[in-house]
Amino acid sequence: MQKKGWRSARAPLIWVALALAIGVPIAKAAGSEQLAWRGPVYILAGFAGIVALGLVLVQPLLIGGYLPGLSAYRGRRAHHWIGGALAVAVVIHVAGLWITSPPDMIDALTFSSPTPFSPFGVTAMWAIFIVALLAALRRRLGLRLRTWRLIHVPLAIVIVAGSVVHCLLIEGTMETISKAALCALVLAATVKVMVDLQVWRRRRTLRGESIAPQ
């Protein structure tokens, strides 16, 4: 009975923890004094970037099946749609910064910006766009599951690493502790899902079973 009660109570706790992990950094950023010196377009671009980082956290949780109440099929579908939302958030982030300062964005996109965080963000951006494009064209290109994984996993690592470093190096509206906590959770979730999926594949292989998901 105790185990059953803990399992039923654990589900809402996981969702609350996820909401806090994403919501607290956004709330802290919304209370930043630096917003007083920023225009609405720049503020929109900045918060789009924060939302994008939150979506990067959700993605491994979905594909790893760590979010309760979602079947494997629904988790994969949500992973697909949130990947699209992530690409849109990045477009808003980049477009807003372009509108507010085209020269700075040109420097960033050409990897000639003096700011240390720019190349990491741009690299993560292109990796996100490549994944989104390939996901949309996967059936037309005839990409098999194994081929898709060989492409997607390295790009996902680039997205996570680039996004986290980009965020940590920026001294902006995000509060330091909540920002660091969100970045740590993104890294932890990514590492966990990769370790878990590798163990799962190894066990299935040893049993002589197919590793393709059902």
Rank of each mutant, 00 (worst) to 15 (best):
V153Q: 14
L137Y: 03
I63P: 02
G121M: 00
I26R: 00
I177W: 02
A27M: 07
L182Q: 07
Y42I: 12
L86V: 04
I130C: 05
S210G: 06
R202E: 08
A156P: 02
V51W: 09
G54I: 01
I14M: 12
L109A: 09
A17K: 02
L137P: 09
A161Q: 05
I92T: 12
R149Q: 12
Y66T: 00
R74A: 15
R144Y: 07
P114A: 00
L168E: 10
L150C: 10
V153D: 10
F120R: 05
L44Q: 11
I92K: 06
I159P: 08
V165M: 01
K4E: 15
F120A: 00
V131K: 01
V193W: 01
L150A: 12
P68R: 03
G49R: 11
P102I: 01
R38F: 14
G208M: 02
L206C: 03
L155A: 05
G172H: 01
Y42H: 11
L62G: 05
V158W: 08
R74D: 14
R38P: 01
A108F: 06
M174F: 10
V158S: 02
I26D: 04
A72G: 11
G39D: 04
T173W: 03
I82R: 05
V165Y: 10
I106E: 11
P119T: 00
T115V: 08
L150I: 07
W126Y: 14
V94P: 08
W200A: 15
T173I: 15
K4L: 12
I130T: 11
W81G: 05
R204G: 01
R138S: 13
P25C: 00
I26Q: 02
A9F: 13
G96W: 07
G172C: 00
G65S: 10
P103L: 00
W98R: 05
W6N: 12
T205D: 06
G49L: 03
A184S: 10
P213I: 05
L109E: 05
L57K: 03
I92N: 12
L169M: 08
T110M: 03
I177F: 09
I177M: 12
L141V: 04
A85M: 15
F111N: 01
F129M: 13
A21Y: 03
